[in-house]
Design a protein around this nucleic acid. Structure first.
Lengths: 165, 165
DNA sequence: ACTATTTATCTTGATGTCGAGATATATTAG
DNA sequence: CTAATATATCTCGACATCAAGATAAATAGT
C-alpha cells in the first residue's frame, strides 16, 4: 500500500537517480508521523482545556512525584526549551492557576514551580486520554512488532542522547 | 541499554501504576527522534547557508522536475504550512535570489514560484549532505530492520493520510 | 448574461519560541 | 576575605508560524 513518502521518494528518484534516498524510507516517515502525533495530541488535550506546551510542563511536574515541585532549570531540561520560554510558560500557567511559584528555601536565586490541585487533576485526566488515543493508534500493530520498533528506535536515538553528556 | 524514554516511563509507572503507558515505548521515541532529526537537519543545512524551512520549499520545487515551478497552493500542500506562511517564505526566498515569482499564464489569480539556478544548486548540495548524514545515522540498523521499521511506520501513518481525503 | 460560489493568493494581528543579555546569588581560587 | 567565575532566573527584541479575513479572478447555476 502506497503512502505519501513513497510518492516523495519516487519523485526524488526520478529527478536525482544518482542519489540513494533510501534513508528517507525510515526517517521521513518518522518525521511525518511525529507531526501527525503532535496534531493528535493537541486535539486530545483540547478536550481538557490544555495546550500541548501546558501539558509538557505539568506532566514533568507530575512525573516528579509528590510534592510535585521542580526548579525552572530542571523543567527546561525535561522539556527541551530555553529559559526564556520556560519563564513565559510558568507565567501563563500561574495565571491559569495550574502551578505556583515558591521561593527555593535552599537557594535565594532559585524558584520552585509546584503543581496546584487543579493542575494535577488536569494533567491526570489529559494523560489518561492521551494514552487511550495512542493505544488505539497502535491497535493495528502486533505486540511483537511494537517491541521490535521500540528497540530499533531506541538504537536510533542513542547517539543523540550520548552527545548531550 | 537504557534511554531517556525508559526513565520517563519508569517515572510514570511509579506515579501512576494504574495507567498502561506502554504506547509511549513506541510513540514517545518517535517524537523524540523526530526532534533530534530536526536539529541534525538544521545543522546539515547550515553548511550550505540554508534554513530548514528554506530547504523544504526548495526541495518541493526540485522534486517537481524541470522547469521547477509550482504554485503557492501546491507548495503549501507539499510542505503542510498555511498560505500566510508560504507567502512569507516565498518573499524571503525571492529576496535571497533562490526562487522567483512568475505570473501564471493560465490563471490571472495565480502565481508560479520557480527555482533559480542558485536555488537549484543550493538544494542539490544540501540534499546530498542530508542523505549522507541520514545514512550514517542508520548505519547501525540492518537493512532487514530498516525495511521492517519502514513498513510499520507506513501502517502507523496511514490513518492520518486517510483522514485528509 | 448575471449572480453566487469557489479558488488562489496576500495581509494583518496574535502567539510561542529563541537567543542574547541583565541581574542577583552562590561558589571557587588565591 | 576578596575577586573572579559560575549558576539560576528573568527581560526583551526578533522571528516564523497560524488563523481569520481581504481581494481578485475563475467557475457554476439559473
Amino acid at each position: 500500500m502506497e503512502d505519501e513518502v513513497d510518492r516523495l521518494l519516487e519523485a526524488w528518484r526520478r529527478e536525482r537517480p544518482d542519489l540513494d534516498v533510501s534513508p528517507m524510507e525510515v526517517l521521513s516517515r518518522v518525521s511525518r508521523l511525529a507531526r501527525h502525533l503532535d496534531r493528535a495530541r493537541s486535539q486530545a488535550f483540547e478536550t481538557h482545556g490544555l495546550e500541548s506546551w501546558e501539558f509538557d510542563v505539568l506532566a514533568a511536574l507530575r512525573r516528579a512525584g509528590s510534592p510535585y515541585q521542580l526548579s525552572p532549570g530542571k523543567l527546561l531540561k525535561e522539556t527541551l526549551v530555553t529559559s526564556g520560554t520556560m519563564t513565559n510558560r510558568v507565567d501563563r500557567l500561574t495565571a491559569r492557576g495550574l502551578v505556583e511559584r515558591l521561593p527555593d528555601p535552599a537557594d535565594r536565586r532559585g524558584v520552585l514551580v509546584q503543581l496546584t490541585d487543579a493542575g494535577r487533576d488536569a494533567v491526570d485526566a489529559a494523560m489518561a486520554d492521551l494514552l487511550a488515543h495512542e493505544r488505539a493508534l497502535l491497535g493495528s500493530i502486533s505486540a511483537r512488532d511494537q517491541t521490535r520498533i521500540a528497540q530499533i528506535l531506541r538504537e536510533l536515538v542513542r547517539p543523540f542522547d550520548l552527545e548531550k553528556h
